[in-house]
Design a protein around this nucleic acid. Structure first.
Lengths: 216, 216
DNA sequence: TAGATTGTTAATCGATTAACAATC
DNA sequence: TAGATTGTTAATCGATTAACAATC
């Protein structure tokens, strides 16, 4: 008997699931009990087959003619993304972006809980931002190891991002959410998810530039 | 004679180009004059053929054996992304995320210049954040039309994002950079680029959850 | 020259979309 | 029942990667 097959989940699927969740949460509030893949697909301008295939990854089975049970589907997606057990995280870089992320109340719904922030500026250490304590960056490895923190968030300038990543890895951090526009050099077992705002802007500015050019 | 063929540029290409730019800028500072696709590919863990193909879109021709001229390549990518002429933008939602984006000095390098911010809170109107004036959201359509602003940035909560988008479109805005975790309902000629932080987190939390599970 | 690198065509890979029998 | 929807296989599409002659 073969071990339970763990099917590889394509990243595009992982990126669509929270979008389904957003729709589902809204529909649940509206009192809807069941939803079809067609409905979800229409709201997001996707193909219904794609939605069904994505949902299949979560292990949920639908019913012909009616679709999927909304609460069940919500629970399945949340559990699939590991959002049902919230993981502690450290944030490094208490500048404006870091402060914004510390202040965002919603991340607990997305599976992470920021319990401390760090900065290289000694004047910031000792203070708090929205009740989250700030420490000097040098304390990170030790604190991280002692508290078994697994997620690190990098919101420092590009020039110091790799240095910060090294300290995180020292501290036993396993996954890095990186907002700095640089390629992090880390061992391959470290999970890195980049939020590259410049890459996002490039899509927007190029398309806009082309549209304006086309009109001429 | 056929009109000059405008080849479709795949989005993945547009997202990689600014990453090349980041490497190139660094190498230029280090005094490097020429760079090969192999070099760029290695730094970003990509395939060199892919890098060459991406560069081909910008119209730059390299030289066998030596590669591409660094300053020429930088200029070509910037011009391709329309980053050489900076476009004015309005930001709506002067909360923590909005403030962080207003405070980020680097966006001018990425082709946009935020000239005003808006908020629904009348107490914020009249003030400034980092020298950028804040107005009440109701003023947006008129101001936008008069100043010919083409880019709008949405940093309001999900619940009000569509309302804001409607006001932007009223104001003649053509491209929206959306940070709210909702699907915007806009006419198809409006360019929307989403920064979905929850989608990014889903990739991270799922991978981390799996890694931890695999170790058991 | 010898060898590294380009530009480009062909092959592969993976994700999306189409088609359709099974089901409630 | 009739008809909408599921689950799944097959076809298509598009992006990535491999191969290689041309070039400096």
């Amino acid at each position: 008997m073969a071990a339970k097959e763990i099917k590889h989940v394509p990243e595009p699927v992982l990126r669509r699931l929270p979008r389904y969740l957003q729709i589902l949460t809204r529909l649940k509030e509206e009192g809807l009990k069941e939803v079809s893949s067609t409905r979800i697909a229409n709201e997001l301008h996707l193909d219904s087959t794609q939605v069904r295939k994505d949902i299949e990854f979560t292990g949920i089975i639908g019913k012909p003619k009616t679709g999927f049970l909304v609460p069940q589907l919500i629970h399945a997606i949340e559990s699939f993304l590991n959002w049902d057990n919230v993981t502690d995280a450290f944030l490094v870089g208490a500048g404006s972006l870091g402060t914004a992320i510390l202040g965002y109340p919603g991340f607990n719904n997305y599976g992470i809980n920021i319990i401390a922030a760090f900065d290289s500026n000694p004047e910031k250490a000792g203070g708090t931002i929205r009740n989250i304590p700030i420490f000097h960056i040098d304390k990170l490895p030790d604190l991280s190891n002692r508290m078994h923190v697994h997620i690190g968030i990098i919101t420092v300038p590009a020039a110091s991002a790799n240095e910060v990543a090294a300290k995180m890895i020292d501290g036993g951090i396993k996954a890095i959410w990186n907002f700095a526009p640089v390629q992090l050099r880390v061992p391959k077992e470290i999970i890195v998810e980049n939020v590259l705002l410049h890459a996002s802007l490039s899509v927007l500015t190029r398309k806009l530039g082309q549209q304006i050019k086309d009109q001429k």
